[in-house]
Design a protein around this nucleic acid. Structure first.
Lengths: 216, 216
DNA sequence: TGATTGCCTAGACGATGGTCTAATGGTGTT
DNA sequence: AACACCATTAGACCATCGTCTAGGCAATCA
């Protein structure tokens, strides 16, 4: 009996995935979440989850960050990315950062089942087109991901706001903390990432960003 | 008798292009440049240039910025991009920002001649694969490009250093100016781009960046 | 010639950023 | 229980940033 975690902030698609799972694994436990923090909470309570189906764009999980954080915290939980973006290079990078599968949202229910089934058996699954173009990712990108993965939850939250161009004062207000506290977090972030100011932080982290795709 | 401008910082490839041109247009005038400022100087002296062949990655011309600046300053000069990057979306965006052609560096001399010939006749030329996938680019991206195009040369130089994460002090030292002057330029840049601080500048301008491709 | 405009320059000053030091509280270890 | 460890919090202090004001200089125009 399998346990699944479906993490997607789009209710329609979340339900579609659940239908597929319930149909093929009627006795499965399916937990759902609609943002990164909820996903992490659920996984902490169900560390034996057999598969996480993770939307690559979710609140708190832009680009590759959600995948990186989840892989760091739960290295034994297989993850497959779900995304509207079916770009070769995006798929390659998701796999390079530890995803076991990549399911474009354009896939049919059959494809989705095949992907889930393959990954549960321990295989990898990506769309046919991309199967021959998987390569190791850039080591610099890998290093950066490893550094980001060492951030504490609070540091990560601050980082997200910093990346949006917010002032320390604004971040503090949003998070219910003093500006001084935000500054302390930011200093810690700089040290972990090996960076000296916020501008360079944005520059560096953009190396982990993906092509924008118009949502379906 | 045609006048060409070949702008590429890679001497080998610059020569290869010149060979093709000289072979098919023996009497043509071919000027060469290896950075954006030199290219602009040459075009100012030869405003009737019939075709600019512009490498997309050159000193002073990262991503789409060189194309944007040249199109703003010399709207009557046809430009074809030359690049190692043959990504569909990159090609689409280059055309969207006013290029008349896009020649991947993997093209044969025949292809290059065909492209040059087509553009001199007033046609557009992109690789076969991309001919059916050209679409208008995002209006937000277009707006941003229009704003960047209003920057003065000095403001643009400051912006390039800002985007690299430099401090005002460092930019001033590099450019032989006071920190106060750099600050003044930066305030002017913010106003033109409709932005309030340097972090947001980096965030915005990354929307004009392209996928990195490993150089050949 | 005088006036205007735009670009480049820079000083003064308040706002924001970033480091250092330090206290609190939770967790896990011996 | 005593201990070390670490995330979180925050104040003090200096560095950096960004705006406002203003002068110099070249090109354009009346």
């Amino acid at each position: 009996m399998y346990t699944f975690q479906v993490a997607d902030d789009h209710p329609l698609f979340r339900n579609a995935i659940m239908e597929v799972i319930k149909h093929h694994y009627p006795e499965a436990i399916v937990n759902t979440s609609h943002n990164l923090e909820g996903t992490i909470r659920d996984l902490e309570q169900n560390p034996d989850t057999d598969l996480l189906l993770l939307d690559i764009h979710m609140p708190g999980s832009q680009d590759l960050f959600g995948l990186i954080m989840v892989r760091q915290k739960f290295p034994t939980v297989p993850v497959t990315i779900i995304s509207a973006n079916d770009n070769h290079s995006t798929i390659n990078r998701a796999i390079g950062h530890g995803a076991c599968g990549y399911i474009p949202k354009s896939c049919s229910p059959q494809d989705i089942y095949q992907a889930v089934d393959a990954i549960l058996k321990g295989d990898r699954w990506v769309p046919k087109d991309s199967r021959n173009s998987l390569r190791p990712i850039d080591s610099e990108e890998k290093d950066l991901a490893a550094k980001v993965a060492t951030l504490t939850p609070q540091q990560y939250r601050v980082l997200c706001h910093l990346r949006e161009g917010w002032l320390n004062k604004q971040i503090g207000y949003e998070m219910g903390l003093t500006e001084a506290t935000i500054k302390a977090h930011i200093t810690a972030i700089f040290r972990k990432l090996g960076i000296t100011n916020r501008t360079q932080t944005v520059i560096s982290l953009n190396k982990l960003s993906l092509d924008d795709v118009i949502a379906n």
